[in-house]
Amino acid sequence: MEKSKYLEGVEKKDLFAHGHRACGGCGQALAARLVADAAGENTIACVATGCLEVFSSPYPDPAWRIPFLHSLFENAAAVASGVEAAYKALGKGPVNIIAQGGDGSTADIGFQSISGMFERGHNVLYVCYDNEAYMNTGVQRSSFTPYGARTTTTPMGNRTRKKNMPMIAADHGIPYVATATVDDFRDLQKKVQKALAIEGPKYVHILAPCPLGWGHHGELTVEVCRLAKDTGLFPIYEIVDGKITNVRKIPVKVPVEEYLKVQGRFKHLFKRGVPSEEVAEIQEIANQNIERFNL
């Protein structure tokens, strides 16, 4: 692979350093590194309990080379609010404050504290690493688990659609919302930097595949992201001051089957290679996205 082309313009500072304990092919570890390197040294990371926290912050050897603050599962946004308030009160800064959490701590247990942080208007970037289930505790369903996906608490497949967090974030009236995946380093880092340059609360939602929970090979993490985008299941866009913009057009639309078939969590949707009706439902979700965002 032409390394130079793929990594061209990508910030690499190792602020989230090697030696952490993530699984091979972990989308979240890759995303966290891209976020830290995009933000730079003048950054404070307020991290929720979860995979990222566990694989990156065991005492006494954390992987972070920027200040790292963790306390609980559901309060990263509130803790970041407090850090920001302290910086204001003490006349310190400017500094990048990035609250970070997985989908559980973002969409479920920490939902309230994020809503509060958005609504109060803190100058904080919230980054959600979305791996579509509670991976740290062993792949249980979250409100980001997509329709049809098998988790340990939805053994027959999840029956609900994924909560639309970017839209919920945007409806708070915050100035910047973006989606990204770990297959496009430059796009992800550009969005983090753009967000940090804007005063006020920001939300960046990153699709971060979990090979263990999704049941795909570690080396397919980037490919799975590309398929999520090209099927229309994970639209890439920004919402600036309430307006959807910079929507990524899909070059060649891919049927959802191709995305589903590489992942063990959707295996039950194909009996002897024949797609079940759930696959049609998932294709419908992709079609709706394609229409809604004009992908």
Binding site: I44, S71, V83, Y87
Partner: peptide, 10 residues
């Protein structure tokens, strides 16, 4: 949580 963050920031 806010006072926790604030205190941790000095």
């Amino acid at each position: 949580s806010v006072v926790l963050g604030a205190s941790a920031a000095g």
